[in-house]
């Protein structure tokens, strides 16, 4: 019981003190889990992180579920995950309540108009970063363009596009057209 409470509190701190999620959370995870406590080694953490990236869902949540499970089985996984999402639930609920009260204020309307422009610039950055990471061969660029056009011009469901893309990679590998090294990078 004590360990479950510790798991909850530790991940509550990580969730509540890191902005941005994803990669920005890694230093905080390392500090809380490997340095302050010896729950997981740095290597284990990087492994969990890698798995968190290639499993469905939010990477930070996946990583906390993994660490929690390793520490105390299914109850541990649940405690860690609840800890990770609790700060978001509290902060966003309060903020959304507050924002919905002042959203019609003229100053707020101007501020949000400016913010929306910046969000667009930030998103453009996100797309470029993702493209740099995922465009590891010309075929990958082709896949991205085809999926982009299908999503833009046809009503094909997002889920189907993801499943078919995943199947394509497996088929290419099975038929020997795609060869990956141990790190998962394509061999030319």
């Amino acid at each position: 019981m004590k360990l479950l409470f510790q798991l909850y509190c530790t991940f509550f701190r990580i969730g509540g003190l890191t902005f941005g999620g994803g990669l920005t959370m890694l230093p905080m995870l390392k500090y809380e889990l490997s340095e302050k406590k010896d729950w997981v080694t740095e290597d284990e953490l990087l492994d969990y992180y890698a798995i968190g990236q290639c499993t469905p869902g939010i990477i930070a949540v996946n990583t906390s579920t993994f660490v929690g499970y390793k520490m105390k089985g299914i109850p541990g996984a649940i405690a860690a995950t609840l800890g990770m999402i609790s700060p978001s639930l509290l902060i966003i609920s309060v903020l959304a309540l507050f924002l919905s009260q002042i959203i019609d204020n003229p100053i707020m309307i101007h501020a949000l108009a400016g913010i929306r422009v910046v969000v667009c610039a930030l998103l453009l950055n996100t797309v470029i970063t993702l493209a740099k990471k995922s465009f590891v061969s010309p075929l990958c660029v082709g896949i991205a363009i085809v999926v982009f056009l299908l999503a833009l011009f046809t009503p094909v469901p997002t889920i189907l596009l993801i499943i078919v893309s995943g199947a394509l990679g497996v088929i290419l590998q099975k038929t020997g057209k795609l060869k990956l090294d141990k790190e998962g990078h394509a061999k030319s």
Partner: peptide, 15 residues
């Protein structure tokens, strides 16, 4: 291999 092709697909979807 699945993620080799899912990653660019997700980039296309996000774009």
């Amino acid at each position: 291999s699945a993620f080799w092709s899912i990653r660019p697909a997700v980039t296309g979807l996000i774009a």
